[in-house]
Computed example of a mutant assay.
Amino acid sequence: MPDTTQVRSSQEAVLPDDVTDPLLWRTAYDVAAAHQPDETGRCPSLLCGGQAAPCDTLTDARRAMDLARSGEAPAEESVPAAAPRPRSRRRRKAA
């Protein structure tokens, strides 16, 4: 049986001190790493079809990384070649 174990980039990344959801942060990190723009400024993922950077998936992954953090420590570089986007301060309306 072949070994199907893959080493993901998040396994080697240093988890920021203020991460409250490590699983979400590491999963989003791997997604963001897979959607980094190529030398032409387009997303290389087949799922994005050459969309201009940042693709929607990269934007969502950065947001997920932010949501996985408590926001108490200063933001630091967490995704290769791009800083995460700041959290939205909007409040949800009550239903």
Rank of each mutant, 00 (worst) to 15 (best):
M1W: 07
D3S: 01
T4Q: 08
T5Q: 00
Q6R: 04
V7D: 04
V7F: 07
V7N: 02
R8H: 13
S9N: 02
E12T: 06
E12S: 09
A13K: 03
A13L: 07
D17Y: 08
D18H: 02
V19Y: 06
T20I: 10
P22W: 05
L24T: 09
W25G: 04
R26Q: 06
R26W: 09
R26Y: 11
T27D: 10
V31F: 13
V31E: 15
A32W: 14
A34L: 02
H35Q: 09
H35D: 09
Q36W: 14
Q36C: 14
P37R: 00
P37Y: 02
D38A: 08
T40N: 11
T40M: 05
G41Q: 09
G41K: 12
G41D: 14
R42M: 15
C43D: 12
C43L: 11
C43E: 10
P44Y: 13
P44C: 11
P44H: 10
S45R: 07
L46D: 10
L47R: 09
C48T: 12
C48P: 15
G49L: 04
G49T: 00
Q51Y: 15
Q51E: 15
A52V: 07
A53S: 10
A53M: 03
P54K: 10
C55P: 09
T57E: 07
T57K: 02
D60Q: 06
A61E: 14
A61S: 14
A61C: 14
R62D: 08
R62L: 11
R62H: 11
R62C: 07
R63K: 03
A64Q: 13
M65T: 12
D66M: 03
D66A: 08
L67M: 09
S70K: 02
S70H: 06
G71A: 01
A73P: 15
E76T: 01
E76Q: 01
E77L: 04
E77V: 00
S78Y: 05
V79C: 14
V79H: 08
A82K: 06
P84H: 00
P84M: 01
P86L: 00
S88F: 06
R89N: 12
R90G: 04
R90Y: 08
R92H: 12
K93A: 08
K93R: 06
K93V: 05
K93G: 10
K93C: 06
K93Y: 12
A94L: 06
A94V: 08
A95K: 01
A95T: 01
